[in-house]
C-alpha cells in the first residue's frame, strides 16, 4: 500500500469520525442524564439537513449569498442550530416527558414511534425526492505530486475543525458553568438534585436542546459536504453514531468523540484495505470485542452496583 493512499484513508476516516462524534454526543448526553436511548436523534439530524437547505435557499433568494458567502453560511448555521434545538426540545416535551417516572423502556418505544413520525412528516411535507444544496465552499488542500497525493477539501477541513471546537465549547459548558454543574448533578442523582433546588425538568430539556444543536452542526456540515440528503439519512447514520457513543463509553463526552473517530477510522481503513462489503460487520464486531474487555466502553465509568 502506498503511503498516500493510507494517509488518504486516515483523512477519510477522520472526517467521517468527526460527524459520527458530533451526532454521538446527543445520544450520550441524553443517555447519561435519563438513561434512555433516544432513537429519534438520528431523525433530528435529518431534519437539520432540511432546515439548512431551506434557510440557505431563503438567504440566496434575499441576495445575502451573493454579497458574502461566509456570512450566509454563518447565518444559516446559527438559524439551523436554533430551529433544530427547538425540535429536540419539542420532541422531549411531547413524547418523553409524559413518560418520566415510568419504566425505562417506555420512552424507548415512544422514541421509535417519534422516529417514524419525524421521517414521515418530513417525507410528506418536503416530498420523497432527494434534496440538495449548491456547493458554495470550493477549494481543496492537496499535498503531494501529480498522482501520489493526499487531499482534504475545505468543507472536510471545516467539519474536523468545527467538530473539535464545538466539542471544546461543550466540555467548557459542562465543566465550568452553572448549567453544566446542574447537568452533572442531575446525571448523578436526579432525586437528590431535585431536592437541592435544581429544576431537573429544565436541565433535561437543556440536554435535549444541546444534543439537537450538536446534531444540527453535523447536519449542516454534512449537507455542505455531500450536497444532498433525503428523509432517510437519519436512520443509518443514527445507528452508527449510537454505536460510536457506546464504543466510547455511553455517558462520557470525550468518549463520544473518541468512539466516533475510532469508528470512522476503522470503517475507512477496513473498507480501503480489505473489503467494503464487510465493513459494517467489522465495525460491529469491534464494538462487541471492546465491550467484552471493557464492559463500559473505552472511557465510560465502570458501573458500580450498590447493594
Amino acid at each position: 500500500m502506498d503511503w498516500h493512499i493510507f494517509a488518504q484513508q486516515l483523512v477519510n476516516g477522520l472526517v467521517l469520525g468527526s460527524i459520527y462524534g458530533l451526532i454521538a454526543i446527543g445520544y450520550t448526553m441524553v443517555y447519561g442524564i435519563i438513561g434512555m436511548i433516544n432513537f429519534a436523534h438520528g431523525d433530528i439530524y435529518m431534519v437539520s439537513a432540511y432546515l439548512t437547505a431551506i434557510f440557505l435557499a431563503i438567504l440566496t433568494m434575499l441576495g445575502v449569498t451573493a454579497v458574502s458567502v461566509p456570512l450566509a453560511l454563518v447565518v444559516v448555521m446559527l438559524l439551523t442550530i436554533m430551529f433544530t434545538a427547538l425540535y429536540g426540545w419539542t420532541v422531549e416535551r411531547v413524547a418523553y416527558r409524559p413518560l418520566r417516572g415510568s419504566t425505562r423502556l417506555a420512552p424507548l418505544i415512544s422514541a421509535i414511534g417519534m422516529s417514524l413520525v419525524l421521517q414521515n412528516y418530513v417525507q410528506i411535507s418536503q416530498g420523497a425526492r432527494n434534496q440538495g444544496i449548491p456547493s458554495l465552499i470550493e477549494g481543496t488542500l492537496r499535498v503531494g505530486g501529480e498522482s501520489a497525493y493526499v487531499q482534504i477539501t475545505t468543507v472536510q477541513l471545516l467539519i474536523v475543525v468545527v467538530s473539535f471546537v464545538a466539542m471544546g465549547i461543550l466540555t467548557y459548558i459542562i465543566h465550568k458553568t452553572s448549567l453544566g454543574r446542574q447537568c452533572r448533578a442531575t446525571q448523578q442523582d436526579r432525586k437528590m438534585a431535585n431536592i437541592l433546588g435544581i429544576n431537573t425538568d429544565r436541565v433535561i430539556s437543556m440536554v435535549f436542546l444541546i444534543g439537537a444543536a450538536m446534531a444540527a452542526i453535523a447536519g449542516a456540515l454534512v449537507s455542505f459536504n455531500y450536497g444532498s440528503f433525503d428523509f432517510y439519512i437519519g436512520f443509518v447514520t443514527g445507528i452508527k453514531a449510537f454505536t460510536a457513543a457506546v464504543l466510547g463509553g455511553i455517558g462520557s463526552l470525550p468518549g463520544a468523540m473518541l468512539g466516533g473517530l475510532i469508528l470512522g477510522l476503522s470503517e475507512s481503513l477496513f473498507s480501503g484495505l480489505i473489503n467494503t462489503d464487510y465493513k459494517d460487520v467489522f465495525a460491529f464486531a469491534l464494538l462487541v470485542l471492546v465491550l467484552i474487555f471493557r464492559p463500559s466502553g473505552l472511557l465510560g465509568k465502570p458501573e458500580v452496583e450498590k447493594v
Binding site: 413524547a95 418505544i109 415512544s110 421509535i112 417519534m114 422516529s115 417514524l116 413520525v117 421521517q119 410528506i124
Partner: peptide
C-alpha cells in the same frame, strides 16, 4: 406510517 407513529407515541 405517520399515523402509526403518532398512535405508538
Amino acid at each position: 406510517v405517520l399515523a402509526f407513529g403518532i398512535v405508538m407515541v
